[in-house]
Simulated scan of single mutants.
Amino acid sequence: MNEPVVPGLEAAFEVDARLGELQDHGVTRAGHRRVVPIVGGRITGLVEAEILPGGADWQLVRPDGAVEVDTRYTARTAEGGHVYLSTSGVRSGRPEVLEALLRGDLVDPSEYYFRLAVRLETSVPGLAVLEQSIFVASAVRGADWVRYTAFRVT
């Protein structure tokens, strides 16, 4: 009777982000820092918008080789409204798989783990309901792109 509802997942939107050249900042006090510019792309589904240049993924490479993902970027709807997205997550796998991804090789997504928590912020009235949900995503990394499907946790 007073049990919590078991969450489910429903597909919400897809992100296809284009990336700039990786900037290797070397080992800092926080760890091995890399920054990957987000230079464009599209969002489709419950959100329809163009990703604007100027965002980035501020990555930390852990001693075990896994990459901690921390992105922030903006998209603009056809009507001119803005959506701010931020993600946090992890990309991990066998060392040879992570090296292949770093080289830009296309690797079967079943060979590595790449999951994200996604947050949205917007002043667009028709999209404001999205700020009231939690989203998780499964992602794929290419040489100069990242694609993910975001799922609303029900």
Rank of each mutant, 00 (worst) to 15 (best):
N2V: 02
P4W: 11
G8M: 08
L9M: 12
E10T: 15
F13V: 07
E14T: 15
V15A: 13
L19T: 06
E21Q: 13
H25C: 11
T28M: 11
G31Q: 09
G31F: 08
H32T: 07
H32G: 04
H32Y: 01
R34C: 05
G40P: 02
G40E: 02
I43S: 05
L46I: 04
E48I: 01
E48P: 03
E50T: 15
I51K: 01
P53L: 08
G54P: 06
G55I: 06
G55M: 01
W58T: 04
Q59N: 12
V61C: 01
P63C: 04
D64R: 10
G65Q: 10
A66Q: 02
V67T: 14
R72T: 15
R72S: 14
R76Y: 04
T77R: 09
T77Q: 06
R94T: 07
R94S: 12
R94F: 00
P95W: 08
A100T: 03
L101Q: 05
D105Y: 06
R115M: 06
L116R: 08
R119K: 11
T122M: 05
S123Q: 10
S123R: 13
P125R: 12
L127W: 08
A128W: 00
E131Y: 02
E131L: 09
V136S: 00
A137V: 03
S138I: 11
V140R: 14
D144C: 04
W145Y: 09
W145H: 14
V153Q: 05
T154I: 08
